[in-house]
Design a protein around this nucleic acid. Structure first.
Lengths: 274, 274
DNA sequence: GGAACGCTGTACCGTATGTTACGTATTTTG
DNA sequence: CAAAATACGTAACATACGGTACAGCGTTCC
């Protein structure tokens, strides 16, 4: 049963030629607004010619473009009048995608429920106000999170380093670490021995440790100054790092805000370098 | 402070003559849909003549009817894209631990709303059933997402490669790419020239491209077989890749399920290697 | 390697749309 | 009550919008 035009499109998008598929994708991307504009504007947005747009709506079963627009407007009217029906569209609600999404959303709410404003502010302060250097490191699956955070922090602050590669390489960086430095560690099950060893050594040198881990807490929590425990359970063969990812983004935002005065100048300088 | 056209109307409706007031009332009655139709339809709905409609929009301060319609569309776009601002009820405002979190959750719901189960299944099939190789690449901030996905896929499939480092290094890998291969690309604003060039070259070699981008669509969408448009707007100095991250995790799960038969054996083999 | 097919864009056309001028009706004011 | 001003609709107009024919191009299949 196909009830909305969006469903109709995703149902037939597989059978469409390249040009019309581009049209379909741009329409879906910000649905349904592009479809309410003129053919010329639609075609420009999609990067195709006008006739391709018309062929596209014809393939969807509409006699002409105005009829297609009317259908979109009717759909929009129904949505606007009863916001209740505006929830998930039925196709994705029934599918395997939705349990995954729901679980992920739950994970995030739970994660933030156990994370106070003050905690976040403290961690942001630790990352923003430090006089030394910031190091970031992650495990097998969480290393990308460390990279993501490093990519942002390195722009607004000097001395931000992501530790990559083999264990022996990090170990040598220990020599640069001291009391004024911060080590951000990502470690979820199954916790990696090498990371634990490294965190312990850093701790012994007085490095402040910020730990991103799962709800069962990596052993690194023993040495950590701040611990962020994210929910990771989802109906999948793998654990989800999405909640930790969102916490990371939130922290990036908080640190940025904190450094706005200095950071703004820094960012201007960076722009000038390009 | 007047922010929406509806406010503007109710502000000036007192000073309007009878006919224009009827126009205003019918527009407010089912706002903003009547305003998106043609002048003739609008006038018929209001029971007045076309010029009255035009005088009405002129009184609101618009130069012409299209300008008025554009304003309505922009307003609608803003509403549809951030459901949070639409339901500005105090209850959710109180429960909102962090605006950042709320925006992120909205982004995810919105992203999945535009993503049908079939689309996801198609992309999972593309990634799982390919006879060739899989390459993943990302931009400045999204490269970690490519890494994250690669880290998982490489476990359940052979020939999964993350493209890292300098542009010249990827370029040389093009020689290994052909029709049976898949290139997963992450590219959000500001879109990277180097990535676009690379995707185009890969496309010319017949490589199937799966694109993760934002709602404004990277130019790479022109060459992509599949496009995933995630919402990225959050109250922060940075865009959020969290929605794309969740889609990536969902796809990883779907591909894994699809390869369960083969993959299970493969994972057993891997376990034995340790 | 050649031929048939299908897809896409350019150029053009008819028309519906927004717009304006003008005459009539209606209200307002002295 | 008269006269003027304002409001409204009819009708004509110009623009730009949707629609179509056609040719070039790439792709696929013998």
């Amino acid at each position: 049963m196909i009830s909305s035009i969006a469903e109709l499109i995703s149902d037939r998008i597989g059978t469409m030629p390249a040009g019309e598929r581009r049209a379909a994708q741009t329409l879906i991307a910000n649905y349904p607004l592009t479809g309410l504009k003129t053919v010329a504007e639609f075609s420009a947005a999609a990067g195709v010619s006008s006739p391709t747009i018309l062929r596209f709506v014809a393939r969807l079963g509409f006699q002409n473009y105005p009829e297609f627009q009317s259908a979109l407007q009717d759909e929009l009217a129904a949505q606007l009048q009863s916001p209740a029906t505006r929830t998930l569209n039925p196709s994705s609600a029934a599918g395997a995608a939705s349990p995954m999404l729901e679980a992920t959303l739950d994970n995030m709410r739970e994660t933030f429920r156990h994370l106070s404003e003050k905690q976040l502010a403290d961690i942001a302060a630790t990352l923003a106000d430090r006089r030394g250097k910031t190091f970031l490191i992650g495990g097998r699956f969480t290393d990308p999170l460390a990279r993501y955070m490093a990519a942002h922090l390195a722009i607004i602050q000097p001395d931000v380093h992501h530790l990559a590669g083999q264990e022996s390489i990090w170990r040598d960086r220990l020599i640069d670490m001291g009391k004024r430095d911060v080590l951000v560690t990502f470690d979820i099950r199954r916790y990696q021995e090498s990371l634990i060893r490294f965190a312990e050594k850093a701790h012994q040198r007085g490095v402040q440790i910020v730990l991103f881990t799962d709800q069962w807490l990596s052993p690194i929590a023993r040495f950590a100054r701040h611990v962020i425990a994210g929910r990771t359970a989802v109906p999948s063969a793998w654990d989800s790092s999405a909640a930790l990812f969102v916490v990371a983004e939130t922290l990036i935002g908080a640190v940025t805000r904190r450094l706005e005065a200095d950071g703004a100048r820094r960012i201007r300088d960076l722009e000038n370098l390009r």
